[in-house]
Simulated scan of single mutants.
Amino acid sequence: MKDPLTQRLYFLFGLLVAACILGSLLSPYFLQVSTLGYLLQYVPILGLLGLAQMLVMLSGGPGIDLSIGAIMSLVALAVAGLFGIGTPLLLACLIGVGLGGLLGAVNAMLVCVLKIPSLMATLATFFAYSGLALALTGGSPIGGIPNWFGQLAQGRFLGVPLHMWTVFVPIAVLLHVMLSQTRTGTHIYAAGNDERAAFLSGVRVWRLRFALYCFGGALAGVAAILTVSWFQAARPDAGKGMELLSVTVAVLGGTHIFGGIGRVMGTVLAVLIVTTLQVALQLANIAQAWQLAAIGMLLIGSVVADNAVNARLRAMARRVPA
């Protein structure tokens, strides 16, 4: 009998195929090569945010980061603003990733040190970061990004956007190795499964979670750099709605909302499913409200599937002899 988590991956792959079939039925343009390029251009941005959300949720708590889209917007503005005052663009990008980690550290301080529930803490920082992004720009984008930098997100290699090869795939592979092959990954799963048992076995749970909030913020900073490259401008609303999409991607991919269960591969498949569905509905000229409704239904279905997987795992654990 297959592992329920492996069955979940098969389920996600089938769902991806179904989304592709739906897209081809809704629009004759869906199966064009140009559509694939556009679809994959969006994947790394949502994918990085989904992976960041997955890591925060995996460590338990329960943990969630509702400010991740606002962090992306604020970092993008910082990168474009620093470049605008004469900072070399690559240095501005490095500073932006550091700023993302710092903003994540604010979340970590609220959740891990002050013990504020993550939902309330990150909702508060979501409003703070979003408000700051709008206040600094008056709602206007910051342009002036050079054409050569646009090649990172707009360039192609074998028909696939360059930032898929150079950013998203390497980060996803490294996270997979970290979670499956290293002590840090073992500690993350242990903290999510049983916080007290992990602590008694020597895992410094609060430090681990603190680091993951910081790392999640840094990943949002990388995603911000990709948006600046794609649009060749920084928009204060670039991360609008991305926090909920990142949660949808993480949960749909099999990450348990209370931690301890989840895989990088599941999150990657979930990103492809959500992106495929969005592009298919856009090509079919489906209204934005119905697109949001479809994503909401997908989230509900993912939670139901998540509960079914966890019930299966508990049943398997009861059958294992002591």
Rank of each mutant, 00 (worst) to 15 (best):
L299H: 05
T275P: 07
G138S: 11
G259H: 14
G216Q: 09
G63T: 13
Q154R: 13
F11A: 08
G86R: 00
P88A: 10
G98C: 12
Q154C: 03
V177N: 05
R312Q: 15
V33C: 11
L119T: 02
L134K: 06
L134S: 13
L39T: 15
L36Q: 15
R196Q: 01
T35V: 15
G192V: 05
L175W: 07
A172E: 01
V264Y: 00
S24G: 13
F157S: 14
Y29D: 15
V304H: 01
P62W: 14
L277M: 04
I95R: 06
A317C: 09
A108S: 01
A191D: 09
G253K: 09
P321Y: 00
V169G: 00
V169N: 03
L245Y: 03
A133I: 12
F157P: 13
P88S: 14
H256P: 03
A92E: 05
F30Q: 12
N310T: 09
A234D: 10
G301A: 08
Q282S: 03
L25M: 13
V56L: 15
V177E: 05
G96W: 10
L175I: 03
V33H: 14
P62Y: 12
A105S: 04
G266P: 13
W290C: 00
R312I: 15
M109P: 01
V222L: 00
T166Y: 14
R207C: 05
G23W: 09
F126S: 09
H187T: 12
A197H: 02
R314E: 13
I257G: 01
Y38V: 15
Q154S: 06
P146C: 13
P4K: 14
L12Y: 11
G216P: 06
N310Y: 12
G144P: 08
C93I: 11
V268S: 03
I295Y: 00
V17R: 04
W148P: 07
A191E: 04
